Every structure is written in structure tokens, then in C-alpha cells.
Simulated assay, not measured.
Amino acid sequence: MTDALKRLSQEGVAIWLDDLSRTMITSGHLGELLDQQHVVGITTNPTIFQKAISAGDGYQEQVADLAARRVTVEEALRMITTADVRDAADVLRPVYEATGGLDGRVSIEVDPRLAHNTRATIAEAKQLAWLVDRPNTFIKIPATRAGLPAITETIGRGISVNVTLIFSLQRYREVMDAYQKGLEQAKARGLDLSTIYSVASFFVSRVDTEIDKRLDALGTDEAKALRGKAAVANARLAYQAFEEVTAADRWQALARDGANAQRPLWASTGVKDPDYPDTLYVTELVAPGTVNTMPGATLRATEDHGEITGDTVAGTYEQARADLDALEKVGVSYDDVVQVLEDEGVEKFETSWLGLLDSTKAELERLADGED
């Protein structure tokens, strides 16, 4: 077995894990991932926390204490999730120090119910940064229309941000603009730009899932020939946009003031169609200065049989544009697809959060009743 993960890291791709649980931390498994599988970061989202907390392992004592204090379910959930992120951040602190703050990061998302409320998102971002209280934390803010000014304001206050749920190229450019505006505000406030970091999480597999569904409904040979091409093409064009923005005078001026580039992060990289290679969204998106956050199964698949052959993004932009143009020609609207995916992404995370609130409330009530 070749060390594909090591080769991926050498190509300039930071390997992050899209998963977290208390057991992963306390068992030492997280530390093993850092030592043995080149993992240098962690991302979380409401669905990940719902899975971890609903499983129950490692949370009983804290939930019992919270029940004894009669805290609200909202407070309990935030105390539980921020505890996990704080402890994970401590495990990753050596990576953070060794990379000068670039990696060793743990991301935690604002309440997804606030995705369309700018002011509330800003307030939540500030609160989460205070609660976790670790320099190697990213606050995740969704790239909704209301999220853009929240990104700017949060960055402008010196809080590092992971912008999530990006599907469209236009929205990605707006995210990069929001980041630069935030850095300009931070500079005006006299903050040290070199201490502010950001990644932009561009979602991948969900694009193929939605577009392939529409192509299958069309059923023509032309439509079938386009299956499985859109997600990689979309991400590659996002990297082209990143290159264009970071080459422009506006960014170069910020860079001279010590600003850090907002790295593209490939998210949703678990392959959902069994007809496709299970490492597709890793091996086809190798480019320097990027992050790939993988679910555990994808990480293991890449380690086992991933073929890392070097940069697979450079020189692909013309074909990527042709692939997306071909979708429009057969009747698949790119603009409609990315809007549907953004709306569904927010809805799915909100559903997970509400389910987590319900299960946490039930456990709090059970333990509170049991102590009387």
C-alpha cells in the first residue's frame, strides 16, 4: 500500500476529517489520525453532532450535570458541542503551532436556523468564539445571501471563519469579496491581519447527485454522457476563480499587509453514487493550497487505494467550462440546481439541529425526573 495520504499532503492538499465525537477524542483515535493519516483539521456540522450525541457514548455525565442545573435545552446543546470542539482543538493545537496557524483547526457551525438572519448570525459567531475560546477554531457561517455581510463583519472583528454551503461559482466570488471586505475592515480597526484565517467550503458530491437525477429524468444519450462530470467541473472552475481573485491588485495589497489567503475547501467529498470511484472527489481535485475534508470512509478509501498523480486541476478549466455548458444545452439549469442545493443544505442542517434539540431535551427531562 502506497502512502496516498502523504502524497496528497505533499501536493499541497490539507487533509481534514469531516467528523467528530467525544469518543473519538477520549479514546485517542483523533490523535492517531493526526499521527498516522496526515489529518490536520476537523470540520463539524449539525448532522455530525446529531449522530455523535444521539449515539450517547461519552455524554452521559455532562448531560446529567446539565439536567441537575435545569439548564435550557439550547444552553445544554451548546455546552455539549463547544466542549467537544474545545477538546478537539486542544488535541490539534500542536498542528496549529507547527503550521503557524494555517492548519490544526476545528470548525463549529452557527445555529442553522439563523442562516437567513445576518444580525443573529454575527451575534452567534461572536458567542461561539467566546465559548470555545481557542485560537485554532473556525466559526462556520453559511454562504446564504444573509450570510455574506455576516462573514464580512465576523472577519472584520478578527474572528476566523469557515464559510460553508457554497455551491455556485457566483456565490463563491461573492464569498471571496466578503472575506476581503472583512479584512479591509479589520485593517481599519488596527487588527493584525496575519492572525485572521478563513476557508471557503465548496460542496462537491451533492452537485452530482442533483444534476445526475435531472440527467436521468431526461434519459437521452447526450444527458447520460454528462453524468458524474458536473461536480468536479464546478469545483475546478471555483479554483480558477480563486486564482483570479488572489492574483488581482486588491488581494495583493491585503497580502502585503499580512493577510492570509482564504483557501478553497472541498466539502461533501463522500461519493454517493456506487458507480463512481469512491475516491473521485479527492483524486480529481488535487491542487496546491486547498483543503479536502473527508468523511472517515473516504479517508480510509484514499489511504487504501487512492491514486495521487499530482495536480489534477491545472489545465482543466476549458474542459470544465465545456462540461457545465453542455448541461445547459440538454436542459439542466445550473442556476436552478445551485439554488435548490443551497436551500436544501440549510434545511437539512436545520432538521438535524431540531432533531438534536428534541433528543437532548428528552434526555435532560429523563435525568431531571430521575433525580427527584
Rank of each mutant, 00 (worst) to 15 (best):
M1T: 10
D3Q: 13
A4N: 11
A4K: 02
K6H: 15
K6Y: 10
R7I: 13
S9D: 08
E11K: 05
G12F: 10
L20S: 01
I25Y: 02
G28F: 06
G31Q: 00
H38Y: 12
I42C: 03
T44W: 03
T47C: 10
T47M: 13
I53Y: 00
S54R: 12
A55T: 12
D57A: 14
G58I: 04
Q62L: 15
A64G: 14
T72F: 12
V73N: 05
V73C: 09
E74C: 08
R78Y: 15
T81F: 09
A83F: 06
A88W: 03
D90K: 15
D90R: 14
D90P: 09
D90A: 15
L92G: 01
L92M: 12
R93P: 05
Y96I: 11
T99M: 13
G101D: 08
R105P: 04
I108M: 12
I108G: 11
V110Y: 08
P112I: 15
H116D: 14
N117L: 09
T121D: 09
K126N: 02
K126M: 03
K126P: 00
L128C: 09
A129W: 08
V132M: 10
D133T: 13
T137H: 07
F138W: 07
A150G: 04
E153F: 04
T154D: 03
T154Y: 01
I155K: 04
G158I: 07
G158N: 08
I159R: 02
I159D: 02
V163S: 03
T164Y: 00
S168T: 10
S168Y: 06
L169Q: 14
R171A: 06
R173P: 01
E174F: 11
E174D: 14
V175E: 01
M176G: 09
D177N: 12
D177M: 08
K181T: 13
E184A: 11
Q185D: 10
D192E: 10
S194K: 14
Y197E: 03
V199A: 10
V204G: 01
R206Q: 06
R206C: 02
V207D: 00
D208L: 04
L215G: 08
D216C: 02
D216A: 15
G219E: 05
T220C: 07
T220Q: 06
A223W: 10
R227P: 04
G228Y: 01
G228W: 05
K229S: 12
A230E: 01
A233V: 07
A233W: 01
N234C: 10
A235I: 02
R236N: 06
L237V: 03
E244Y: 00
A247C: 14
D249Y: 00
A255P: 00
A255F: 03
R256H: 11
G258F: 04
N260V: 14
A261E: 09
A261V: 14
A261I: 15
P264I: 12
T269W: 02
P277K: 07
D278H: 05
D278R: 08
T279K: 04
L280N: 01
E284Y: 11
V291A: 03
T302K: 10
G306A: 13
V313M: 09
Q319R: 14
R321N: 03
A322D: 05
D323P: 07
A326G: 13
L327T: 06
E328F: 08
E328R: 13
V330G: 07
D335V: 02
V338F: 10
Q339G: 00
E342D: 04
G345D: 11
G345A: 15
K348C: 05
S352V: 00
W353R: 13
L354I: 15
D358I: 09
S359N: 05
S359P: 11
A362L: 07
A368T: 00
